[in-house]
Amino acid sequence: MPYVVKRAGFYALVVFIVLFSIFPFYYAILTSLKSGTALFRVNYLPVDFSLANYTDVLTNGVFPLNILNSVIVAVTVVAISLFLAVTAAYALSRINFAGRGLLLLTILAVSMFPQIAVLAGLFEMVRWAGVYNTLFSLIFAYMIFTLPFTVWVLTTFMRDLPIEIEEAAIVDGASPFTIVMRVFLPLMWPALVTTGLLAFIAAWNEFLFALTFVSNNSTRTVPVAIALLSGASEQEIPWGTIMAASVIVTVPLIVLVLIFQRKIISGLTAGGVKG
């Protein structure tokens, strides 16, 4: 095969990959900028620039509140799981104790739990604790997937740090807590940012618990709010508004992911866990 043909074939593949990856989101943006009957004409290139759908979704209804709820839940979940995970990961990676392997195995097993397996039990617990229909129920429930993941990734990261870095601190008689806070934490910012971001995305996107533990429109998080956006009648699905809402909640994620691209790739491969 001549070189030129080969090269052209390769670049055709590259173009296909890029189109495959970005076209659906591009089309969602395109749709979100259409209003009225323009929605029902198929266009491949942008022709309409109407912000009506955006003003509609941001001013009518509770969608801004839903965004706030999602931010509160995701930020709290990330903060709590990182705090618990850093100290736990130190113990799991730097201290020899009986039962460490078993504990790591349990954590890995929990990270693979199907959410549905704990749904009934968690539902009873949430109702018993009186947090049904509040954001606390979600903050608590999301620990099931963020905590094992952060512990696992941070353990892998800390395990690879050389022994020398804590030797001096041990000789100086620093307590383990001081060692974690003063010696490890400053070294771990890159790992913390990556795991925090991955945990944030997981909490931001979660659907099953959010659907089950919250039934009040103004307490819902964005995935459920988008799934339940409906028009005046059954037949009238407000596609323009749905796309506008989708773009609003996705753009921040895409920006974050593109900024932390390299770190995310290494975090994903280290954890081997889907965010």
Partner: peptide, 11 residues
């Protein structure tokens, strides 16, 4: 290539 991964499943 990372974009589809970053988009919430519901979206």
């Amino acid at each position: 290539v990372l974009i589809p991964w970053a988009i919430p499943t519901i979206v």
